[in-house]
């Protein structure tokens, strides 16, 4: 039995170095050189200030902003240090109560919208950090946002249309709107206050992050990665 024992210990040590440290280090090095923005969390900055990540939803409660989906992450929601879903099952009283309350609140906050409530808008996401809402969920809030910002409904709806991301490769996933990017665009385009003239709002303009998927870039990266891998392992 001893004969079978020693290689176990020795190989565990070797694998810890190879697949734990070297592999992780190699991937980190390549990503930090080629795509540091992505590797570091796709952060959005205004000046020196990090205002969030393009990929992580955040809390919005003011009427002049689009609101995200309910979140079960952390006690106040959208705690990016404590991702969590609600884990409430389909026959949960708590879920039904929560939905009932949020339907009423939604109707109260959005008196000018009378259509049905989109499936995603009042249901909690899996991660509690969902950065997106569906285009319909954005449109459902458009009258409220337009009113709060003193804009016409069509101006706001136009913005939603511009920022709607289509399914990747035309097929994968659902159309969606990134709430943070949408709200940044609101600040950029439309003054926050009814009375203020157009274009004089306090917020700086924020450059849009790259589209999440660019197939040609992917191919270049993966072939680069291969070359790197071969070099290093040789």
């Amino acid at each position: 039995m001893i004969k079978e024992f020693m290689p176990g210990l020795r190989l565990m040590l070797v694998f810890t170095v190879l697949t734990g440290l070297m592999y992780t280090g190699l991937v980190t090095a390549i990503c930090q050189v080629l795509i540091p923005d992505r590797a570091n969390g796709s952060l959005i900055r205004v000046g020196d200030q990090v205002i969030g990540s393009e990929l992580i939803g955040q809390v919005f409660t003011k009427p002049e902003y689009f609101h995200p989906r309910p979140s079960a992450a952390g006690s106040d929601g959208y705690d990016a240090w404590a991702s969590s879903g609600s884990n409430l099952g389909p026959t949960s009283q708590k879920l039904a109560d929560r939905i009932k309350v949020s339907v009423e609140a939604f109707r109260q906050e959005n008196p000018d919208y009378r259509g049905p409530i989109p499936a995603d808008l009042l249901t909690a996401s899996a991660s509690g950090l969902d950065p997106h809402i569906s285009p319909d969920s954005a449109r459902a809030q458009a009258p409220r946002v337009a009113k709060a910002r003193g804009r016409s409904l069509s101006q706001v709806e136009q913005l939603i249309k511009e920022l709607t991301e289509n399914p990747d490769l035309g097929l994968l996933g659902d159309p969606r709107v990134n709430v943070l990017r949408l709200n940044l665009a609101l600040n950029e385009r439309f003054a926050e206050r009814l009375e203020e003239p157009e274009g004089n709002a306090g917020c700086a303009s924020v450059p849009m992050a790259d589209k999440p998927l660019d197939v040609s870039r992917l191919i270049v990266y993966s072939s680069l990665a291969r070359v790197f891998m071969f070099r290093i392992l040789k």
């Binding site: 989906r69 879920l95 249901t123 899996a126 997106h132 569906s134 996933g173 659902d174």
Partner: peptide
């Protein structure tokens, strides 16, 4: 049933 699902995945 979108409770517990992400919008980008559907």
């Amino acid at each position: 049933n979108m409770e517990g699902k992400e919008v980008r995945h559907g």
